Amino acid sequence: MSYETVEVLRDGGVATLWMNRPEVHNAFNAQLIADLSAACRALDADASVRVVVLAGRGKSFSAGADLNWMKAAGEAGEAENFADAMKLAGMLRTLAEMSKPTIARVHGAALGGGMGLASACDICIAGERALFATSEVKFGIIPSAISPYVIRAIGERQAYRYFQTAERIDARRAAELGLAHEAVASDALDAKVKEVVDALLLGGPKSQSAAKELIRAVANRPLSDAVVEDTARRIASLRVTPEAREGLDAFLSKRPAAWVDN
Results as ranks from 00 to 15, higher is better:
Lys138Cys: 05
Val193Ser: 10
Arg93Ser: 03
Arg157Thr: 08
Arg168Pro: 07
Ala183Trp: 04
Cys121Pro: 00
Leu111Glu: 01
Glu128Cys: 07
Glu75Asn: 15
Leu189Asn: 01
Phe82Gln: 14
Lys194His: 14
Leu201Ala: 02
Leu189Ile: 00
Val193Leu: 11
Ser186Val: 13
Lys138Phe: 03
Ala174Glu: 06
Met70Gly: 05
Ile146Asn: 04
Phe82Pro: 09
Ala210Leu: 08
Gly112Met: 08
Val196Asp: 03
Ala83His: 13
Ala79Tyr: 08
Lys100Phe: 02
Thr94Lys: 00
Arg173Cys: 08
Trp69Lys: 03
Ile142Arg: 06
Glu156Tyr: 10
Asp84Gly: 12
Asn81Leu: 04
Leu179Ile: 10
Ala65Ser: 08
Ala185Asp: 15
Glu80Arg: 14
Asp66Glu: 10
Phe139Tyr: 12
Ala118Gln: 03
Leu92His: 05
Met86Ala: 15
Phe82Gly: 13
Ala73Pro: 10
Val193Glu: 09
Ala183Val: 11
Glu213Gly: 06
Glu128Asp: 15
Ala166Leu: 00
Arg157Cys: 06
Ala171Trp: 02
Leu88Tyr: 12
Ser147Phe: 05
Gly77Met: 07
Ala89Lys: 13
Ala126Pro: 05
Asp84Glu: 10
Lys192Asp: 00
Tyr160Ser: 07
Gly74Glu: 09
Ser209Trp: 14
Gly127Tyr: 06
Glu167Thr: 04
Phe163Gly: 13
Ser147Tyr: 06
Ile141Ala: 05
Ala180Val: 00
Ala79Pro: 09
Ala174Val: 05
Ala199Trp: 11
Ala89Asn: 14
Ala185Asn: 11
Ser135Gly: 04
Asp66Ile: 08
Lys87Glu: 11
Asp122Gly: 08
Ala133Arg: 01
Ala180Tyr: 02
Trp69Leu: 05
Ala89Tyr: 11
Ala191Glu: 13
Gly74Leu: 12
Arg105Pro: 01
Pro148Trp: 03
Gly112His: 09
Ile103Pro: 02
Ala133Met: 06
Gly155Glu: 04
Thr94Arg: 00
Ser119Phe: 01
Cys121Val: 03
Met70Pro: 07
Arg152Ala: 01
Ser99Ala: 15
Gly203His: 15
Ala180Glu: 02
Ala109Lys: 03
Ala210Lys: 02
Val197Asp: 00
Lys192Glu: 01
Ala65Val: 12
Met91Val: 15
Gln158Ala: 05
Ala104Glu: 06
Ser144Ala: 10
Ala126Lys: 10
Glu97Leu: 09
Gly114Ile: 13
Gln164Met: 10
Arg161Gly: 02
Ile169Trp: 02
Ser99Glu: 12
Ser119Ala: 15
